[in-house]
Nucleic acid binder design. Structure first.
Length: 840
RNA sequence: GCCCGGAUGGCGGAACAGGCAGACGCGAUGGUCUCAAACACCAUUGGCCGCAAGGCCGUGCGGGUUCGAUUCCCGCUCCGGGCACCA
């Protein structure tokens, strides 16, 4: 038993903090030990952590650092908590940039991509991110391509994949077809800035719309950010309404015009009908007098870009044309003119609408431009000065609907009427379209079919899969896939009839690759099928998926569709409908408000920080800088903030390694028995465990780091205080801090742990610390004494103080008395032990 | 236009359940160490008034509820995002 205050030898540390040496050592160690490999028969409870696998664009950027730091931290913490954590990674390695680079430089996309993967891998390893690298998947691996193609063929058999003619985006600058997502909101190409054109081509589609309802309904139960759910809901765009047929005057016996509306309750106000210019009935409906005008209009619309067609400005009187024909409103027999207008789209609903100008602003504007009648069927409130009225109100001019004020009720009644008369029916429409998956590009997974003049579309026999990409191709900016000019690839014999046939030269959208990779990760060694059912049952769904908000719609929706489609085809476990149970979307790293990107030249490479302050400091910075879901704008001050994190780690090092005690600085450690000051420090340590643990749980890493910094400051004051520190207390504090920081700054904590406990298992094999509830109990707190809501005094009181005691103490306070100035309190609100408010 | 999210010191941010606004970090100022610098360390740091004790003001703006509002309600402004002639 030592005497209080007597300095004793504590920890002795020779070197100073050398991040590069420490980080290299532990990265080698983890890899050699297979520390984060996990086998499928592991008996610990499973936990699947996944960061969206990256497109390999070269060395990691700050967005990667952020993303993979969040993921790695969770992997390490869950491992310490006793889970078998599945932490796989791979590369989304097909895509346009590699092909563009090939056109520019002549380097083959595979060579180019493999080199970029090496760079990115090296960055990820230097970050200290822990993965089971044995499970690595690259989209362009022949094995992965094989299963991609098998799945495609299965979907083809099931009618989930089909071919139809469709307008696609064509960029004249790039001389190539673009994916929808590569077309900016203003209709220009994201790369060249040229205005994207529409071209009609025969294309491959996935029938995602077959799952529209389920994809929408199931959003409800997902533990996803609301923002993302709302975006998906918008994108699917379900609208309920009715479809019904309008007879055309003079065309008895012929099929009528089918219209879709969400407001069947306003049908009595229909004063005209509008068809899309592409509507198949247009030629039949056009009268001889109007033929010239209609043909001219239709021809003009065809030359317009999508953007021109969809912009709401532009003179309305040039945007439509009268066909010369009339339809009959089945509700009241009214004779209404039939128009064409460019704003009615053939691709939504039935391509035809009933126009009710009184209750729809677009129809109102059109009616004004063409001098058409307007009949209100919903009475607007008194004093209404607007035009179309879409709110609630009593029905008027609507025969048997008159007087009804509830829109839902009126709709139901109108639909009932339509159905009972066999005129129409209730329908649901979606904004969501089928997924166009074919790309006229080389660097993607070939679509495994053959076009035979006699047999039509024939699948490449499964034993011939995968269809690989030939290497001996030339990359020229012709706008056509090099595959089309490769006779060896193109010309084949039909597997069915043996006659000459052509191979499909389109490749798959790269979103196909990312739509099921998370299933393949469960067992990438499976040789007989794309997804091992047992392994998928063990790991799926992903417990925590982490990635950027930019994938909120496309990738996440496609993956949800694929998971269901695979399940329904028996290719994945039937019960797994949702791929990602919990989703976290991190904020973007921006610079001057816009996204950092190679093309903007504003990339701040993480590598330079690895070389200076080290990966741990950079990781800590990304965690500390703000809420993980918020965007962060990289500024001139950012380097200093990173320095601050590095300074913190330096302080940690000096204390944990004993340098503080070596250099004096007033710090002492003694073997004395516990005094109140030591117990208080122990309690701080337990409080830290509690805070950091709950901060991890609620994704509040910035406050977790802050708590650790605060704690280290407290610990310094403690050991540098007049009594010095008690050895046991200091050891407990330092060890706990190292464990809690472990997932955030893994290298430095591993090194310090090993220095302090050379014989013990390494830090990453330790258990996650848990606070002792008894040590979280506090005896005294500061209570605030207010007069009229203003703080006048602060009192140290026991936590279990009663209301009466609290009131008495506050009223006895001289500061309170002074503030009262002799006035008699009207009311005293006591909320012990937090505050007492005296009201006069 | 519709639907989300946000606004707090010089800066990033904290305040988890209506109860001490500004934790933690950066920057700034002053100081210690040093021949000097770097590193490190110590102190101060929302604004205004005051020698001080202390006081007043303060969470985008205007109202409201409450003993008490950054937090809840109503009405705005600005910023960011999503959807948008979708019938």
């Amino acid at each position: 038993m030592g005497q209080a205050g007597r300095p004793v030898a504590w920890k002795v540390m020779v070197e100073h903090y050398d991040p590069q040496a420490v980080e290299a050592k532990w990265q080698r160690r983890w890899e050699a030990d297979g520390a984060y490999q996990v086998d499928n028969d592991d008996r610990r409870p499973p936990f699947y952590v996944l960061c969206m696998y990256p497109y390999p664009s070269g060395a990691a950027h700050q967005g990667h650092v952020r993303n993979y730091t969040f993921g790695d931290l969770l992997v390490r913490q869950r491992t310490m908590q006793g889970y078998a954590v599945l932490s796989p990674i791979g590369f989304d390695s097909f895509g346009l940039p590699a092909e563009n680079a090939a056109i520019r430089t002549g380097v083959h996309p595979r060579e180019f991509t493999d080199a970029r993967i090496q760079e990115l891998k090296s960055s990820l390893k230097r970050l200290g991110a822990s993965y089971d690298w044995r499970r690595e998947i690259r989209s362009h691996d022949p094995e992965y391509m094989r299963w991609n193609q098998v799945i495609f063929q299965r979907f083809l058999d099931a009618g989930l994949a089909y071919r139809k003619n469709a307008p696609v985006n064509w960029c004249p600058g790039c001389q190539t077809v673009l994916a929808n997502e590569q077309v900016l909101a203003d209709g220009t190409c994201e790369r060249s800035g040229d205005l994207v054109e529409k071209r009609d081509l025969e294309q491959w589609f996935f029938r995602i719309t077959a799952y529209a309802d389920e994809l929408l309904e199931a959003l409800e139960g997902l533990d996803w950010p609301d923002r993302v759910k709302v975006m998906q809901r918008n994108w699917i765009g379900r609208s309920e309404g009715a479809e019904f047929d309008l007879a055309v005057e003079g065309r008895a016996g012929e099929p009528g015009i089918r219209v879709f509306t969400t407001r069947p309750d306003t049908a009595f106000g229909m004063t005209f009908v509008v068809l899309a210019p592409e509507h198949p009935l247009v030629p039949a409906l056009t009268t001889a007098e109007q033929r010239g005008a209609v043909e001219e209009f239709v021809a003009r619309v065809r030359t317009e870009s999508d953007i021109e067609r969809q912009s709401s400005d532009g003179p309305l009187d040039k945007r439509g044309v009268f066909t010369g024909s009339y339809a009959l409103n089945p509700f009241n027999g009214a004779r209404v003119p039939i128009f064409l207008a460019d704003y009615v789209l053939m691709t939504y609903g039935t391509g035809a609408i009933m126009a009710v100008p009184a209750e729809d602003q677009r129809d109102w504007d059109f009616a004004k431009a063409y001098d058409l009648p307007i009949v209100r069927t919903v009475a607007p409130p008194d004093g209404w000065e607007g035009e179309a009225y879409t709110g609630e109100g009593p029905r008027i001019n609507s025969e048997w609907l008159d007087g009804l004020t509830d829109t839902a009720e009126a709709k139901a009644k109108a639909i009932e009427w339509l159905e009972s008369g066999a005129i129409g029916r209730r329908t649901v429409n979606y904004r969501l379209r089928d997924w166009l998956l074919s790309r006229q590009r080389y660097w993607g997974c070939p679509i495994p079919v053959i076009h035979c003049p006699t047999d039509g579309i024939v699948k490449v026999p499964e034993e011939q899969l995968p269809v690989l990409l030939p290497d001996d191709v030339e990359f020229l900016p012709t706008g056509e896939s090099p595959l089309r000019h490769h006779p060896g690839f193109l010309n084949v014999t039909c597997p069915r009839c043996g006659g000459p046939a052509e191979r499909e030269t389109d490749t798959m959208d790269t979103f196909v690759d990312s739509s099921w990779y998370f299933l393949r990760f469960c067992d990438p060694w499976e040789r007989s099928r794309p997804v091992s059912l047992d392994a998928a049952r063990r790991w799926m769904p992903v417990d925590q998926y982490i990635g950027g908000i930019e994938h909120a719609i496309l990738h996440l929706l496609y993956a949800r569709f694929y998971t269901r489609a695979l399940a329904d085809q028996g290719l994945a476990p039937a019960e797994i409908r949702e791929p990602f149970g919990r989703l976290f979307t991190q904020g973007m790293i921006t610079m001057d408000g816009s996204k950092m990107s190679k093309s903007k030249g504003n990339l701040i490479s993480p590598e330079q920080y690895f070389e200076t302050v080290g990966a741990d400091s950079l990781r800590l910075f990304h965690l500390f800088v703000g809420p993980p879901g918020d965007d962060f704008d990289w500024s001139a001050q950012t380097d200093q903030m990173i320095e601050g994190c590095h300074r913190f780690l330096g302080r940690l090092w000096r204390l944990a390694a004993g340098a503080v005690f070596e250099s004096g600085g007033g710090a002492t450690v003694s073997e004395r028995t516990a005094e109140p000051v030591d117990t208080n420090m122990d309690k701080e340590t337990h409080r830290l465990m509690d805070r950091v643990d709950s901060d991890y749980t609620r994704w509040s890493y910035n406050t977790a780091v802050a708590a650790c910094m605060e704690f280290l400051n407290t610990l310094y004051k403690y050991v540098q205080g007049p009594a010095g520190g008690r050895a046991e207390t200091v050891d407990f504090a330092v060890d706990t801090l190292l464990l809690l920081l472990g997932p955030m700054a893994p290298h430095i904590t591993a090194e310090l742990w090993e220095t302090r406990h050379p014989e013990a298992p390494p830090l990453h094999a330790q258990s996650w610390p848990a606070a002792d509830p008894a040590m979280l109990v506090v005896e005294t707190v500061t209570m605030v004494a207010q007069v009229n809501g203003k703080v006048r005094d602060r009192l140290e009181i026991p936590v279990d103080i009663t209301v009466e005691q609290a009131e008495a103490l506050v009223l006895a306070s001289p500061r309170v008395a002074e503030a009262l100035g002799g006035a008699t309190p009207k009311k005293v609100i006591a909320r012990p032990p937090r505050l007492v408010n005296v009201v006069v």
